[in-house]
């Protein structure tokens, strides 16, 4: 059930063209992976309260920052995908195919629980590459962070608590630095379109 929710939300992040929908899907993913981290936190010596705070940072604080930005700047509400919806669905289907293939490799055959994580990772990369709105890239980074966090819960539950905390802080600070940059971008590129970032080439 949880795996299905992760798969569905990951697909939504890559396919949708609305920032708010992508953020809500990212929040659900972060909530699930954060919840798993709270459970795994006991093994790493992280207290449940700190684990909860760490999970809350990625699941709530960073997405709230993005939603506030969208509210203030409505133009940021459109993710402006670079390909049509049909192509995005096809890419997500290919992501699922690749994820299944990866988990079928000899090195990972003993880790079937990594399938949703591999799919999440690929969907995060798809979101980073497909959405032309700069906020789409921030959402993609957040989902990528959730995927790595979830992989940590599956692969290395004994990962030191300090790394989990640092990773969560990292995700939140990256989000707010990115929002600061996007805010500054508005004067130069009102559409917040990533394709306008082509002044530096060669």
């Amino acid at each position: 059930m949880i795996d299905m929710m992760i798969l569905a939300c990951a697909a939504v992040v890559a396919i949708t063209d609305r920032t708010r929908i992508a953020v809500v899907a990212a929040v659900i993913i972060a909530g699930i992976t954060g919840g798993a981290a709270v459970t795994a936190g006991h093994g790493s010596g992280l207290s449940p309260i700190l684990s909860f705070a760490v999970a809350g940072m990625t699941a709530l604080i960073a997405p709230l920052g993005i939603l506030y930005f969208v509210r203030v700047h409505p133009v940021a509400g459109d993710l402006r995908p670079s390909v049509g919806v049909g192509m995005r669905v096809a890419i997500v289907a290919a992501d699922l195919f690749i994820a299944r293939g990866t988990i079928g490799l000899a090195s990972f055959r003993t880790e079937p629980e990594l399938l949703p994580d591999a799919f999440l990772l690929l969907c995060a990369l798809t979101a980073l590459m497909v959405h032309r709105n700069l906020l789409g890239q921030i959402v993609g980074l957040l989902v990528l962070g959730s995927a790595v966090e979830y992989a940590g819960d599956v692969l290395l539950p004994t990962l030191p608590g300090i790394v989990r905390t640092a990773f969560a802080f990292d995700a939140v600070i990256v989000t707010f630095i990115a929002l600061l940059l996007v805010h500054a971008f508005r004067t130069h590129y009102p559409l917040l379109d990533v394709s306008s970032l082509r002044r530096l080439r060669g």
């Binding site: 990369l125 980074l141 990256v174 990115a178």
Partner: peptide
Amino acid sequence: DSLEAAWKYLVLCSA
């Protein structure tokens, strides 16, 4: 230019 550079740096290095 410097904002563009900072954006690319942040996104690519974070990923």
